[in-house]
Amino acid sequence: MPTADPAPPLAAETGTQPLVLWSVEGGDLRRQLASIAELDAVGVDAVVLPGGSLATADPILIAGAASRRAPRVGLIASLSPWLQPPFHTARVLGTLDALTRGRAGWLVDPAPTKFSATDDTDRWTASGVSDLAELDRAFADYLAAAAALWNSWQPGALVADVGGGQYVDPAKVQVPHYRGEFFSVRGPLNMPRSPQGRPVILARWPIGAVVNDTASSHADVLIVSQQADVSAARNQTATVLLELHGTAAGAPPATTADGYLISGVSDPALYGHVVHTVLPGLLPPTGRRGLLRERLRLPADAFDWTAPNPNPTPNATSATTKDLE
């Protein structure tokens, strides 16, 4: 974890160009897909796709749909963990990372659910839970379960050894047997390790009433809404983005953050101005390429495979959250 620089130079002074991420407006799917393709063409580093309620389209599927017309841009899904068990989330994000050759991200949103959906099993659900401390503990557990799954296949497990008759080296796949306070998942994942190892995790800072909450202490990238929060966020993580909402995107201010998240640009005239006039001044002419985590200047070791604890304890949280720090 990098330590805080008391007076970081402005991005402009270091000569590094700022990162630019764009939060796509919800609504009509055709328009969303067209906008993602356009932002890809102008070289935006990543788009954040809206999720958040059962009344909106699933952002991971929008990302999958966009993956061919938008072949370079990072595709980040805003997704509540409370929609489904950790296995499904780990699996679908792993697939998105494979399908996009390493461009998947997850903007975590562990806010209380606006719906209630339960069944007759005794599995914990977030439905009806408004205690933020409980949700925060549950979210730490959820992330640890997902991390254990993403860590269940070592790099190089796909050997495709025709002579030896083995497609996967079984010694490179471990069963995590994850058991936490809220979630348990046997594993392993049924898919190989994805190109980035796992999706990039982003969170808004501070996320809510809980200070030092799970989301912001585990995120690779933190999004702040004012310059005054940048240095505190930097104490938590490597990459910090300043959110520019609406008209603020028309004239990006100097910032000590690593770049911007542009959001709330729904007015067509403003959209045209930002995309065609503002962005070309911020982005390298050909755009950045490669894995999303590299583009976001994240330390590679945060994504490395780690040998699982040989004697998993019943309360395995501590052994596995490490992978996300």
């Binding site: 991971i60 599927l61 929008i62 990302a63 999958g64 749909a65 993956s67 061919r68 699996r91 679908v92 792993g94 697939t95 998105l96 494979a98 399908l99 796909l158 008759g165 083995q166 497609y167 996967v168 080296d169 079984p170 796949v173 049924n190 898919m191 190989p192």
Partner: peptide, 20 residues
């Protein structure tokens, strides 16, 4: 892992979205 009848396998849903 020699026979690959069920694994490795990816989630079919994002692929279906791309096919769409």
């Amino acid at each position: 892992f020699a026979a690959t009848t069920k694994s490795p396998k990816h989630d079919p849903l994002p692929l279906a979205a791309a096919i769409s």
